[in-house]
C-alpha cells in the first residue's frame, strides 16, 4: 500500500505501459525493438500482480511470488530471443522481420 496512490492509478499506469508495448510490437520491424516492447508488456503484468496483491489481499504473498517468477522467466526468454536474433543476423545480415517472411503460402 502506497500512501496517496490508489489502485486505479496504478492499474492505469500498467495499462498504458502494456499498450505502449503492444504498439511498439506491432509497429517496429526491428527485432530488438520488438523484444523491448515485449519486455514492457511483461513488466506491466508484473506490476499488476504486485499491485493487486498488495491492495486487495495483503495477507498472502502469491502475487509477489508470481512477479518474481515473471522476472526470472523474462530474463530467460530474453536470453533465448537474443540468441535467435543473433543466429538470424548471421543467416540474413539483418534483424528486420520484413526480411524474413519466407514462411508463407
Amino acid at each position: 500500500m502506497i500512501e496517496g496512490v490508489s489502485l486505479i492509478e496504478i492499474l492505469s499506469l500498467t495499462t498504458i505501459l502494456f499498450f505502449i508495448g503492444v504498439y511498439g510490437f506491432l509497429t517496429r520491424t526491428n527485432l530488438i525493438a520488438m523484444l523491448m516492447s515485449l519486455e514492457l508488456m511483461i513488466n506491466a503484468e508484473a506490476i499488476n500482480f504486485v499491485a493487486i496483491n498488495k491492495y486487495l489481499s495483503p495477507a498472502i504473498m502469491q502475487g509477489q511470488v508470481f512477479s518474481l517468477f515473471i522476472i526470472a522467466l523474462a530474463a530467460a526468454e530474453t536470453a533465448l530471443a537474443l540468441a535467435i536474433i543473433l543466429h538470424l543476423f548471421r543467416l540474413t545480415d539483418s534483424i528486420d522481420v520484413k526480411d524474413v517472411e519466407e514462411l508463407k503460402y
Partner: peptide, 17 residues
C-alpha cells in the same frame, strides 16, 4: 483465405491482438 498466411510477424500479432 490463404493470403492471411503472409509470413509477416506483425500481421500475425495484429490478428492475435
Amino acid at each position: 483465405i490463404k493470403f492471411l498466411q503472409s509470413g509477416r510477424l506483425q500481421d500475425y500479432a495484429m490478428y492475435f491482438v
